[in-house]
């Protein structure tokens, strides 16, 4: 992997909401072609960090560079469009436009280019939908008529509409059953191989974490305490990391759920 090229470079980032400090000094680099996973406890600022990368929050201090440009410099419309066009985002709830059909949702970014003809857009949309395994019979449906897993896949198709180089996934497998989430993981791996994607992901799901991530960045104490491969992070001595990975052993150990509790103690 070419370690030299940072697609996203974060230097000394500080984030504050009022008096509440979310990030004190965050330094992170996302290399081209890797899948980086952000983990951290609830409220540790994972989603906020992702929103910083997306330009949805303003840094209080420090810089966030995407493709070598800070969002602040990118005031010129063309540059902004350029960054937006090269990134795709899968929001946690999908964030599909509920007033548009599945087809129109995926077609929207393409229509915004004002270059492609309607017949090309139609083909491209059907291809994107096929890539995420959505049948053509669902193209005319409204998002409210879809199941949770399908919403995620349609949202992924929309994120991929313009073949982004950089893909953000916010809890991609939350709310999917194990089989679906395994399918989703395979889908992302396949797409990554084909489209040469760089992926930044936030997840709590250990299976997704282990099967997808090249590197893991751990957020705690308002900064990135460590970033590295699963093995490196696993050995990192920090209470959060220890308790996070302890769950892995918990998972495999069978538990007796039929122990007596204060509710089931027989009364005599």
């Amino acid at each position: 992997m070419a370690q030299s090229e940072c697609v996203i470079e974060i230097n000394g980032l500080q984030t504050r909401f009022g008096n509440q400090v979310i990030h004190r000094d965050v330094n992170l680099c996302v290399y081209r072609g890797e899948i980086l996973t952000l983990i951290g406890g609830s409220g540790s600022g994972k989603t906020t960090l992702m929103r910083q990368m997306l330009g949805l929050e303003q840094p209080y201090g420090g810089t966030v560079r995407i493709f070598g440009e800070t969002r602040n410099n990118a005031n010129r419309n063309s540059l902004k469009k350029n960054i937006r066009g090269r990134t795709g985002v899968l929001f946690q709830q999908g964030a599909l436009f509920s007033a548009l059909t599945v087809f129109d949702n995926v077609a929207l970014p393409m229509r915004e280019l004002h270059t492609l003809t309607e017949s090309i857009i139609r083909e491209l949309v059907m291809i994107k939908l096929k890539m995420v395994a959505i049948g053509s019979e669902h193209a005319g449906k409204m998002p409210s008529a879809l199941s949770g897993g399908m919403i995620k896949r349609v949202a992924l198709a929309r994120a991929l509409a313009l073949d982004p180089e950089l893909l953000f996934l916010d809890e991609p497998t939350a709310g999917l059953d194990p089989e679906l989430s395994e399918g989703f993981v395979e889908l992302i791996l396949g797409l990554r191989k084909e489209l040469n994607l760089t992926i930044v992901m936030v997840t709590h799901d250990l299976d997704t974490l282990m099967s997808l991530s090249d590197r893991i960045a751990v957020l705690a104490d308002q900064r990135v305490i460590t970033a590295g491969t699963l093995d490196q992070v696993y050995r990192f001595p920090h209470p959060f990391v220890v308790s996070f990975f302890k769950n892995m052993q918990h998972k495999t150990r069978p538990m007796n759920h039929w122990e007596q509790t204060w509710k089931t103690v027989p009364t005599r």
Binding site: F103, R122, E123, V125, M126, I127, K130, M131, S136, A139, G140, E194
Partner: peptide, 16 residues
Amino acid sequence: ETMFERFERLPGYRSE
């Protein structure tokens, strides 16, 4: 190759 194959196997979109 794969991308062109996708176009070849494209199901027809029937607009309702």
